[in-house]
Design a protein around this nucleic acid. Structure first.
Lengths: 153, 153
DNA sequence: ACTGAAAGAAAGTACAG
DNA sequence: CTGTACTTTCTTTCAGT
């Protein structure tokens, strides 16, 4: 992956799947060259897909929360993860270090909705013995952009 | 926002900015009708943009972490937030309830890189008196899809 | 690995119903 | 909102550097 590939990725992260012609002009390259590079990046799985970004507040999902979950025993893991994937309000689920086992990011309508998710959906699962909820008051930065260069180098 | 708009949003979240013709066929609608709807959604700001999804591991950003940050006094907030926005490894920054003030999500090369971010970048800022780091061992779910319908209804 | 041009294929748009 | 027809634009191919 050279600098031109990085340039392509950063343009695509910023604008989605634009036309070869437009991408080519942003990269100072011809259309066939730009198309070739992007197809290679797609084939390698470096580009996983293309998505629209929706404003969660404008569609009624104004409350964000992070929930730490403790699982009683490892045997519960498979079923737990399967159920987690079925809950649309759960955007992320990470296995983490520390006191608790999992950290999930939730996006929902409001506190009543959050209460239902914690009480019914999560604490109703086998093996979930403890949850710890952190409510998001305000979000100052939120991007899915991968940092192709850091401030360090 | 009716059901057809929701259908449009979910298709766009899944596939990015596809052609009007393709979107129209997925929605059982004519191209001009689909185009009109999407343009309205863009104008209202419900659709905030289009992006490519990049595999972080494949571009060398295999380590994810969440860091809780405690700020000494409210006066430090403005400068803190300004600096946070300049750090490309920080993908998210949320003001939260609980013991600590902010929760940031970090994506970096590895532990050495994380150490630099915590020690130099974060703890070097005015007002940052405490940080608490949670390392992500494995990510089972990670999407930016807004749940337009919940399991509840 | 990239350029440039040219052919061919599609996509977006405007308009009438 | 549909369906068509028009116009413009993009993609792809290929020969050449």
């Amino acid at each position: 992956m050279d600098d031109l590939d990085k340039k392509a990725l950063s343009e695509l992260m910023a604008h989605g799947r634009i036309t070869w012609a437009e991408l080519a002009s942003r990269m100072d390259l011809s259309s066939p060259a730009a198309a070739d590079r992007v197809r290679r990046l797609e084939d390698k799985g470096i580009i996983k897909g293309y998505h629209a970004e929706i404003d969660p507040e404008k569609v009624g999902y104004g409350l964000t929360a992070f929930i730490f979950i403790t699982l009683e025993r490892p045997e519960h893991t498979a079923e737990f993860l399967h159920l987690i994937k079925e809950i649309p309000e759960i955007q992320e689920c990470h296995h983490i270090t520390g006191e608790d086992n999992y950290l999930v990011k939730v996006r929902c309508h409001g506190t009543r909705d959050l209460d239902r998710i914690i009480t019914t959906e999560l604490r109703g699962m086998h093996g979930v013995v403890k949850t710890k909820t952190v409510i998001v008051l305000d979000t100052q930065k939120e991007t899915t952009t991968v940092p192709l260069k850091s401030n360090d180098e």
